[in-house]
């Protein structure tokens, strides 16, 4: 029996990653981001998403990858995980794929590009290995808050 998982393919520094399409609310072009002072480095600020303000994270910075200036191809992926809505800045959002869940493997051996705790699995496809991102850990609250707390302590 075939179970298909629909994913959106994004790129970060030319590496392709997959994100479960069900966690994605919309894909936006880059727009003016208002910096929010005294928050984590990877939180770039907030944007106006059709009348609501949502925070935006530089996904590369969050994953401790090499960062670069946004280009025409850059997109803000608006995702929702649990009750949290966040925009993720990615280099590009290219296409949608159906992945057979039987072909997804655990990520343990693929570490090296990105810390494995951020990877939900690896889809082995004919022409490539697609890293599926684990948004829960990427947005891990406790950790995020710790970072903010730390910064606050430093200020005071």
């Amino acid at each position: 029996m075939e179970n298909l998982l629909k994913v959106i393919v994004i790129t970060l520094n030319n590496q392709r990653y997959g994100i479960n399409v069900q966690q994605i609310l919309s894909i936006e072009k880059m727009q003016e981001i208002t910096r929010v002072p005294r928050t984590s480095e990877f939180i770039k600020g907030v944007i106006n998403l059709r009348g609501e303000t949502i925070p935006v994270i530089d996904l590369k910075e969050r994953l401790q990858l090499e960062t670069s200036e946004p280009t025409n191809q850059s997109r803000i992926l608006v995702i929702q995980v649990d009750a949290v809505t966040v925009g993720l800045i990615v280099d590009s959002a290219t296409d949608v794929l159906d992945i057979d869940t039987n072909e997804i493997e655990r990520a343990s051996e693929m570490a090296g590009i990105v810390n494995e705790k951020y990877i939900a699995g690896i889809a082995k496809r004919a022409e490539e290995l697609l890293l599926l991102l684990n948004l829960q850990t990427i947005l891990n609250f406790e950790e995020t808050e710790e970072v903010i707390q730390l910064e606050k302590v430093e200020e005071e």
Partner: peptide
């Protein structure tokens, strides 16, 4: 939003006429 909590000295945001926050 609930992702960014308790920013020192900031109570919230608003959207200006030009669409910026």
């Amino acid at each position: 939003g609930n992702f960014i909590k308790d920013v020192f000295g900031i109570s919230g945001a608003t959207i200006l006429g030009d669409g910026n926050v």
